[in-house]
Design a binder for these strands. Sequence first.
DNA 1: ACTCTATAATCAAGTTACTTGATAATCAAG
DNA 2: CTTGATTATCAAGTAACTTGATTATAGAGT
Lengths: 154, 154
Amino acid sequence: MNSKADLEKEVLMAAAEYGINSVLFRNAMGRKLGLNITESECLSLLRIKGISNPTELARYTGLTTGATTTMLDRLEKAGFITRKHNPNDRRRVLIEINSEAAVTSVSLVSGVQKAHKELIASYSDTELEIIADFLTRFTQNVKEHTHMIEQDLR
Amino acid sequence: MNSKADLEKEVLMAAAEYGINSVLFRNAMGRKLGLNITESECLSLLRIKGISNPTELARYTGLTTGATTTMLDRLEKAGFITRKHNPNDRRRVLIEINSEAAVTSVSLVSGVQKAHKELIASYSDTELEIIADFLTRFTQNVKEHTHMIEQDLR
DNA sequence: ACTCTATAATCAAGTTACTTGATAATCAAG
DNA sequence: CTTGATTATCAAGTAACTTGATTATAGAGT
């Protein structure tokens, strides 16, 4: 018999657990590919977004832009990414994840992605709507508070 | 009008978005507290678990145990954590997050925690059960595949 | 068209944090 | 009570990061 309060706690804990295990997964994969933590984080973002740029990656990894440049040098040399010119703004650089690298790392990711897809497919439309709504709102909270902290930093 | 396939994709994307924004939040908070990335990650785990040990923190941060020792030295010196002896095993050390440090960092976290709790409270029991179930199973996928990758590393 | 300011990425020098391998202490099994 | 495994630490060498300057480009205002 679960009270509402118990359920609420359970959801909060489950969300935290997910965060913890995402980090552990990223670490395991990074170690497998011979990458350090920041390189792993960088590729994590690129695997989701496909394409990015040094500024965004600096923000995501928490590095300075200087450190990001040398990190991207390493990833480029190792064949994980490619730098391309941004045709709309010649100051900017586009960072693409290489398809071969994507294949290697995605082959590690594909297993869990497949499992996720199967899990999701097992829910009804109504349930999926509830889940999507929750995740979106939950993420929105995180976004807003990140913004507040960053504002406060200036 | 959303097809089931669209909904499934939406959930998958929303989960990824949550992961991305958790990282950005952690970075913002770390910068606010004058911590580097690994120190921030360490405190993130301690804020959830309250108490841990060097081995677990090494795994979580992706550091070697050597690097973990010096990182904990820094966090201890800065007053964020305390080392205590494990009474059950004298080789082991317990790492506790300091209440003052918890207060400082929790005051940053408390805002988003409060928002999360309010959000969660706005759902019905039935909805919360669906959400908790989904998050737990989703996390289980991640755990299993982390384990597979780690097995494969030996 | 032409400054001026802002932004993007890079680079070079100095600093910090990490890895590796060794060591000490303790535990648990035989 | 010996042996092998585990936990944390330490010391030396290496790798990655920060800071501040530099180059190139963009966009706004005159």
